[in-house]
Write a protein that binds this DNA or RNA. Structure first.
Length: 278
DNA sequence: TCCCAGGTATTTT
DNA sequence: AAAATACATGGG
């Protein structure tokens, strides 16, 4: 299945810190586990991507997952033609980034794990959790590739805390357990969060163990696709302080600040990472 | 070996 | 109410 788009870049998406189960296999080729499925993606040229799935599965799942109905060119153009020099560079550099529509529970648990960990360590934890508590599957389309789906709330809520910790969670083990149990008991209805606006959803999420303002905003942005949510982590915090002297005007990007945040995050980190430089 | 990582909860001023 | 501090583990 081939996707044509003037604004999709697998490398940018995979390396932008929004998802943790999309991995580079070799140049231009990535594997991805999401929604219980395994696919491989190839950047065949600047404007096209090949996915190892049927047309039907693409229409049913991946088209939405990659947010293909949204016009990212419009935002990139606004930023590149705008007056903000930093965002101009960030948008030029990150052209092809998209905000994925990820599973809400996986996003919630993943970003609880993310606190005080670097991205490789986060990925490692999530992979270990999946092997331990997910479902083993074999991809029929990708050379019988073996993979493990992300655990369900039931599986994590029923986990033994010592066993959980062996996945490298550290002190976060109790957060994962409590939050999974809260989801299972429907103390919070994570499906209904979709019906709320971003502010209301964040407020609900803050009741969960291990979820503070930053993680709540990440869940809102990446799990609920509230593209106005603007997570502030150490990197974004440094940008707001060092580049904008704490005078960054979010109102300028009302309604899509989360996407702007993603260009910022990806760009600033590229400055410090050889392997992401263009 | 040392430092720090897409922060949060708890304790202390 | 605001500010300091503890927290587990592993990647670089």
């Amino acid at each position: 299945m081939i996707i044509k788009s003037t604004n999709i870049n697998l490398k940018h998406i995979a390396e932008s810190g929004q998802c943790f189960r999309m991995n580079r296999m070799d140049d231009n080729k990535y594997s991805l586990i999401a929604f219980g499925k395994y696919i491989e993606l190839i950047q065949t040229d600047r404007d096209s991507v090949e996915i190892t799935c049927s047309e039907e599965e693409y229409q049913l799942l991946w088209k939405d997952y990659f947010d293909m109905d949204y016009n990212y060119n419009e935002i990139v153009t606004v930023l590149i033609q705008g007056k903000d020099e930093f965002l101009k560079k960030a948008a030029e550099f990150g052209r092809g980034l998209r905000i994925l529509k990820q599973d809400i529970f996986e996003t919630l648990i993943s970003f609880i794990i993310s606190q005080r960990k670097n991205i490789p360590a986060i990925k490692s934890c999530i992979e270990q959790l999946s092997v331990k508590y997910g479902e083993r599957k074999v991809s029929s389309t990708c050379d019988n590739k073996e993979y493990y789906t992300f655990p369900t709330p039931e599986r994590l809520a029923g986990a033994n805390i010592e066993e959980l910790r062996k996945a490298g969670l550290g002190y976060r083990d109790k957060y994962i357990l409590k939050t999974s149990q809260a989801v299972l008991r429907s103390d919070i209805d994570i499906i209904k969060l979709r019906e709320l606006n971003s502010g209301e959803a964040v407020r609900e999420l803050l009741n969960l163990s291990g979820v503070g303002i930053k993680v709540a905003n990440c869940v809102s942005l990446y799990g609920l696709h509230h593209i106005e949510s603007f997570p502030v982590d150490v990197w974004i915090g440094r940008i707001l302080k060092d580049i904008y002297h704490n005078k960054f005007d979010l109102e300028l990007y009302n309604g899509f600040a989360g996407i702007v945040q993603q260009y910022m995050f990806y760009y600033i980190r590229s400055q410090n990472k050889e392997d992401i430089k263009p």
